[in-house]
Amino acid sequence: MKTRADAEVAQQASIKSLIKVMQILECFSQRDADLTPADIAARTGLPRATTHRLVSSLRDIGLLEQNGKRDTYKLGMKLFQLGSLVLQNLDLDSHARPYATRLQLITGENTHLCIFDGAQMAFVERQAMNSSGNTMITRIEAAPVHCTSVGKAFLAWQSAGLIHKIISDSLPERTPHTITDGDLLLAELRLIYERGCAYDLQENELGVHCVGAPIRGANGQVFAALSVSGPAERLPLPRLEGLAGLVMETAHKISLELGWLPGRTVAAATAFTRHDSRPDHAG
């Protein structure tokens, strides 16, 4: 008959196995889409026999796919299916749309609602004014994390591990204003964390300025971001700074709509969390 101690030992073993599975899945990135079991063992520090066993199990349940007869693996479509369900269940689009629409009408500029897809910021929604003065809603595929206001607004509230993973995956130069140095990006993210919003001053696209703020889920974790963007000549830095409060306030309201309760929900520690006191930014 199993004792309580036996059950606790079994639970701890299961948790350790799940941690190993996550370590394996997190080895993959856009730059390293195909890896051998030896590559995975080297990156995780797991024994090769353990790695081969877990990789085979993940392949059998569809979380990894083997590349033909080659001994390399990539993330499986099962993860895409699960991720799509997560997005649908979040219902971010319907909760946030009224706020994004109001923000667009007040500012007269484009608004973007984005979520992190594991590598880039995926646009859930973009609202813009057409020539006749009516709001248009369009979908866009993705945008870089390191040089957009939505990307930096998301990244500043993430763990040191994720930030360094983004940096190590490379910081491509989109314009002459793009931050491509890891140390400079870290310094920028710290400033963003302290003030509660991020600016994109022609970093992703020449002639375009943006201001973005983070959106939290019910657990307090930042998982999405909202921004206002427009021509640099119409949105110089002083005007962006003037709009920052409105963008942060709107992101804050969306977070509350999604179930975030400031002071009652605790997010995971971020790269810039202070040990003495954690700033509670709007949004």
Rank of each mutant, 00 (worst) to 15 (best):
A33D: 06
A96W: 05
V150E: 10
Q81K: 05
C197T: 09
A100S: 12
Q30Y: 12
T250E: 09
R43T: 04
C210F: 08
D34Y: 07
P176G: 04
E233V: 10
I61K: 05
I140E: 11
V208A: 00
I179P: 04
C27S: 08
Q104T: 14
F272S: 01
M248I: 04
R234K: 13
L35M: 06
I254A: 12
R264T: 08
S94Q: 14
T50Y: 11
P214G: 13
D93Q: 09
P47H: 11
T138K: 03
P98A: 03
P37Q: 06
V150W: 02
S132Y: 02
I163Q: 11
S159Q: 01
G45S: 08
E194Q: 15
T51E: 10
S84M: 09
N219S: 14
T44W: 13
S14F: 11
H52V: 09
F272Y: 15
S255N: 08
M1W: 09
Q127R: 13
G62Q: 06
Q202W: 01
K74S: 15
T101K: 11
M136C: 01
Q104H: 06
S255L: 07
N67C: 04
T44R: 06
A218Q: 12
S168C: 05
E65L: 11
H209K: 02
D169N: 13
A122V: 00
A38W: 03
D39V: 03
N204Q: 10
G68S: 08
T107S: 13
R48K: 08
D183I: 12
V124H: 01
Y99F: 15
L201K: 10
C27I: 05
C114D: 07
W260S: 06
L186I: 14
R126H: 04
E233L: 13
T250A: 11
T180R: 07
V21S: 06
D71G: 03
F223M: 05
R102T: 10
H177T: 07
R190Q: 13
V21R: 11
K152C: 10
G83V: 00
A96H: 04
F28N: 01
A13F: 12
L256Q: 09
